[in-house]
């Protein structure tokens, strides 16, 4: 009896381990092996310190839960026609740690946002109050990334220029360093450099 009992447990343990090992090989190790030597495209610039800080702000405030960073192939979806950029390839992401591909498009794809919206002022205003720029937007406002200031202007301060309907008289909206870093990151999201078809096929 005890022999048969051991077999049961052994089968269970070994079976479970084999299966998970197989899955790790297929879904973790194999991608690692195929992707680890992908060279960064010559047009891809490493993030600066400031952009990396901004990337952390992007992560901390969960922009990923509404914005993907993976334009699709025209054969699947009209992303390119919307101005979201050419289909992305693995090489575009080699400097991304952690990856921010995303799984929701409650808002538009942002992988090439810097190309279609290069204005720092626009981004700052949009973050402060999205509805000032796009009526009906459901993107949250981020007032906690800004300060309201009154009184005399201080030297070197950036002031957000809001559309008149949203500006409060006598109050200046000044971005915090976090907001400035975040926008610096958004303005680095430009993968419009060309990639070889071979890279695209990997």
């Amino acid at each position: 009896m005890s022999g048969a009992r051991q077999v049961d447990v052994l089968r269970l343990g070994l079976g479970a381990l084999f299966i998970i090992a197989f899955a790790i090989t297929a879904l973790v190790v194999m991608p690692y092996a195929t992707l680890k030597d992908v060279p960064p495209p010559s047009g891809l610039k490493a993030y600066t310190e400031q952009q990396l800080r901004g990337r952390q702000i992007y992560i901390a405030n969960g922009c990923i839960y509404c914005h993907s960073q993976q334009p699709r192939d025209p054969s699947i979806a009209p992303d390119q026609a919307r101005g979201w950029g050419r289909p992305s390839v693995p090489a575009d992401y080699v400097i991304d740690k952690p990856h921010l591909l995303g799984t929701m498009r409650t808002g538009p794809d942002l992988f090439n946002i810097a190309v279609r919206q290069p204005s720092e002022a626009w981004h700052l205003g949009h973050l402060y109050q999205p509805r000032a720029y796009l009526e009906g937007s459901i993107m949250p406002a981020y007032p906690f990334l800004f300060e309201e200031r009154t009184g005399p202007a201080q030297p070197g301060e950036t002031v957000v220029s809001l559309p008149p309907a949203y500006a409060k008289p006598g109050v200046r909206i000044v971005p915090t360093p976090e907001a400035i870093d975040l926008v610096a990151y958004l303005l680095a999201l430009d993968r419009s450099y060309p990639v070889l078809p071979a890279e695209a096929r990997r």
């Binding site: 381990l17 973790v28 992401y93 400097i95 740690k97 990856h99």
Partner: peptide
């Protein structure tokens, strides 16, 4: 048996990157 293995592989520091990390993530 599986849960601890999942947690360990997913959390190996400094190993995962870019698209490979996305594959690992899912």
């Amino acid at each position: 048996v599986w849960l601890p293995i999942l947690l360990v592989v997913a959390n190996i520091p400094g190993l995962h990157f870019g698209v490979q990390q996305a594959a690992m993530n899912w």
